[in-house]
Design a protein around this nucleic acid. Structure first.
Lengths: 216, 216
DNA sequence: TAATCTACCAAACACTTGTTAGGGAAGGCT
DNA sequence: AGCCTTCCCTAACAAGTGTTTGGTAGATTA
């Protein structure tokens, strides 16, 4: 997926000289979404101009509107695609009938895999979800957040009741703690680094579950 | 400090009818910065127009330029003021000569107090710091981040060497873990809630240090 | 009372923004 | 060949942006 930059000035550079077969129809859309996601994640949604995205994709601003009908529909598609895949994985975990601790472990591991696959989308979600959710078009963001809380908080409460999680902590605080520790990782995580998603998940789980202090 | 909202439409509402003494000169600036910070934190810096800020402050957009010479200088002042106060507290903690664990505890507690005092500024910092730091004007953001890492990472390494923190974890990962879990709290923390900053710090420390799982 | 200062308004400026309309080159299909 | 579809460019538009300039009511000072 060649989505990298090509300086900036020459806007009439690659017109038809790149390939012999000419990229297939539905692929191009995905490529453009990927570059858009990358720019959105790096600069922020509002700070990103459609001209910047087009530039990064090697075309002009207006040409984007052949593939998408608005800038807003780009983030929409980026975020909804991500959330769909995310919940596909989550639902599978939640339906597996695991114990509370095992469920948390599986959810965390699954989350880091999603961060690995959709790093840009996660970063966008983190930064923009709050004020995008205000618009009715992005109502599914709020819905997802509710489902999210239900899944995690429910599992934690189940764990407290079962005696595997500490009962002396505010469960809601614990929920936010666990949730945040997982997802903020997207702000610094870079795929292809020294740690695989599974390895990071393992260490995060070790810290969250057992703490960073040495047992006395 | 009455910086709250006053509906929206009437922009010629409070002209001189609020006080008898007429707010003293340097106070007004602080009030305006507070409302600006609130809007920036809620909507995001780029998504916030100066007209919106002015509206929230009960005046017109151009009038802001009597107090500030640009929108950028507003965030600048908001962030630098916050960071100055933050480091005043941090430096005091770091100079106290505490042990590694006690230093971490003090830093976390101090951080939550700063979140309590500068909630909006912290939220802005979290969202915008990364791409603001690119501009030379905001070079102090990068400087602060370096100092930050030095302080926290150094303390953690000292703790590992002293045997009070686990040695089987990637220290850099632990650093990001601790750092992020503390500061993202600003995204959901609301002053005047059920938990005081000290109480939240206590529970966070308990989770980070000892974990959420029951000791077996 | 006159001069000055403070804090704002009114109105505009130059520029950037997302978006649109019409056109055209290249390949596939009949 | 001719037609059609795909994908992009050129050129513009209208709305919104940060910012500037000149003015002015009211308090302060002389």
């Amino acid at each position: 997926m060649p989505k990298s930059s090509q300086s900036s000035k020459s806007s009439k550079s690659s017109k038809s000289s790149k390939k012999t077969t000419m990229t297939a129809a539905p692929e191009r859309r995905g490529e453009l979404l990927a570059t858009a996601a990358e720019v959105f994640a790096a600069q922020g949604y509002n700070a990103t101009t459609v001209r910047r995205i087009a530039d990064e994709a090697g075309m002009l601003a207006g040409s984007l509107y052949y593939h998408f009908d608005s800038k807003e529909s780009m983030v929409d598609e980026i975020l909804s695609t991500f959330l769909n895949e995310l919940w596909a994985g989550y639902d599978e975990v939640l339906a597996a009938g695991l114990g509370p601790r095992e469920t948390i472990e599986a959810l965390v591991t699954q989350s880091f895999k999603e961060i690995d696959r959709h790093r840009a989308a996660v970063a966008i979600y983190q930064k923009e979800a709050r004020h995008l959710a205000a618009q009715p078009r992005f109502g599914y963001l709020a819905d997802s957040q509710v489902k999210f809380e239900r899944a995690w908080l429910g599992t934690l409460e189940r764990g407290v009741a079962a005696g595997v999680f500490r009962a002396d902590l505010d469960v809601r605080l614990t929920y936010r703690f666990v949730r945040d520790t997982v997802w903020v990782a997207a702000s610094w995580y870079r795929p292809g680094g020294q740690h695989s998603p599974e390895e990071i998940a393992r260490q995060y789980l070790s810290m969250v579950l057992d703490g960073v202090a040495v047992r006395s």
